[in-house]
Design a protein around this nucleic acid. Structure first.
Length: 429
RNA sequence: GCGACCGUGGUGAAGUUGGUUAACACACCUGAUUGUGGAUCUGGCAUGCGUGGGUUCGAGUCCCACCGAUCGCCCCA
């Protein structure tokens, strides 16, 4: 093979792209109901946009970024996630100003890039659908975002999910907890995994979601951040949980949920599903939380945000694994068969008239014989096959055949062009 | 970054200790049926076995490198 697509990328072909279209359409419709509007930001940003916000020690920044110097010597990065770029745009365009209504609610969908080894549910170019809402510190907004994420999965026909919830509290909480965690883990330093040894001082919270059995034995009895919440942080979190209760949304409070990006605080959550298609155990397909420092970090005012990101490839893998059906968005209403060269023009006119009237219609472009044209109609799953031959042409008629029943009627050509719906109604219902 | 496994037509694949014409099936095209689909039968359909080297009289089969797929770990959506 001479040319192959780059490692970790995918060609999404028509046999698959209709599913993407369905997912994107469904998401758009839902976001509209919650009054979130689309924002489109560049696929690449200055390196600093991500390195500053995601955390200099995070794996995403240190080893997974597609960064390079452009011809002008600018250090740029293909975006590894959606939030930082949106926040940058929010700040640069002064959307925090009084001209915009708060909370300022946006959504995005598009490709993200991470230099990793591809495997199930993970590509180097992958896609996320996400939302961000700025300008409200109230826990009510956290709940809206969580409820909307769950609503979205519900729209896709996904029944059983696990909502894992945690809080990182405010700065004071985090400092106190960080200290407590280090104090707890320090005596076991030699017994920790190499990764965790390194993380202990840089970012001890990450030790909590280690899957290494060596670490897990200590994590189980580690102090819980919930015991270190300041009054404010606790109040915020309690409000979130009580609102979730009021909305009949099930959740598990899971202190091991810490998130891979450093900009979160207060509420964080992951929505997980269990499926053989995504390996054993639960896999996170959607995750998010509140970030109160990010806007300020990128040069904006002290304004908070909350959002989530949904992995489209993982969602798709899960839905396919669970045999959740995707609607056929592009059925073929009519295939027009022309018999004999002199019908060619009229055939084209009928096809265009039907398209003009809002039907999907197609015809032969390979000079096939009638039999071949019917085979094509059958293969394309046409609902109706219309036939024009010499006889029909002379009498200004056309044959209309229902492919499902095999029933065929002869009707005036004009009727088909002017009101195909009525022809179908009268002939087949 | 580490590990495992794999790479033959449009697809699913066979290919025996390396041996000369790369099975079989599906799909597709064609004809039986010069104006009618989903059934049956006719005939057709890989100048090449991911790419590049090497070993050999001879390589799809052995060796090396590279590229890519799949699946773990790490990490993450």
């Amino acid at each position: 093979m001479k040319y192959q697509r780059p490692k970790g990328t995918a060609d999404i072909l028509p046999g698959q792209s209709y599913k993407w279209e369905y997912i994107e359409n469904t998401a758009r419709k839902l976001f509209s109901k919650y009054r979130y509007h689309e924002i489109r930001t560049p696929m690449f940003e200055n390196f600093n946009v991500f390195s500053r916000t995601s955390g200099d020690t995070s794996d995403i920044v240190t080893k997974e970024m597609y960064d390079f110097n452009d011809k002008g010597g600018r250090h740029v990065t293909l975006r590894p996630e959606g939030t930082a770029g949106v926040v940058r745009a929010f700040v640069q365009n002064k959307l925090y100003g009084p001209d915009t209504y708060k909370p300022y609610k946006v959504f995005y969908m598009g490709p993200m890039f991470r230099y990793e080894r591809p495997q199930s549910g993970r590509e180097r170019e992958f896609h996320q659908i996400g939302v961000e809402a700025f300008g409200s510190d109230l826990p009510e907004l956290d709940v809206e975002v969580i409820a909307m994420a769950l609503d979205l999965l519900k729209q896709f026909g996904i029944k059983h999910v696990r909502l894992a919830l945690n809080t990182l509290g405010d700065e004071e909480t985090r400092d106190a907890y960080r200290k407590a965690l280090i104090d707890y883990l320090k005596p076991h330093y030699d017994e920790l995994s190499d990764d965790s040894k390194e993380r202990l001082y840089k970012n001890p919270l990450r030790v909590l979601d280690s899957k290494d059995p060596k670490d897990k034995q200590f994590v189980a009895d580690a102090p819980s951040i919930l015991d270190y919440l300041t009054d404010n942080a606790k109040q915020h979190f309690d409000k979130v949980t009580s609102l979730l209760d009021a909305l009949n949304i099930d959740y598990d409070i899971d202190p091991s949920v810490v998130r891979g990006l450093d900009y979160y605080n207060h509420t964080i959550f992951e929505i997980m599903v269990k499926s053989k298609s995504l390996g054993k155990g639960y896999t996170t397909i959607c995750a998010g939380g509140r970030y109160n420092e990010l806007v300020k970090q990128l040069g904006g005012p002290d304004m908070s945000g909350v959002g989530f990101g949904l992995g489209v490839e993982r969602l798709l893998l899960f839905m396919e694994g669970e045999n959740i059906p995707f609607p056929n968005l592009h059925p073929l209403d009519a295939y027009v068969v022309g018999i004999g060269d002199d019908t060619d023009t009229e055939t084209f006119k009928v096809v265009q008239a039907l398209r003009d009237a809002g039907f999907s219609a197609d015809r032969d472009y390979l000079d096939k014989k009638p039999r071949g044209q019917f085979k094509a109609a059958n293969r394309l799953n046409a609902e109706y096959t219309l036939t024009i031959g010499g006889k029909e042409l002379a009498s200004h008629k056309i044959n209309v055949k229902s492919m499902a029943s095999g029933e065929e009627v002869s009707v005036p050509l004009k009727d088909v062009k002017d009101n195909f719906n009525e022809v179908i109604e009268d002939s087949f219902n």
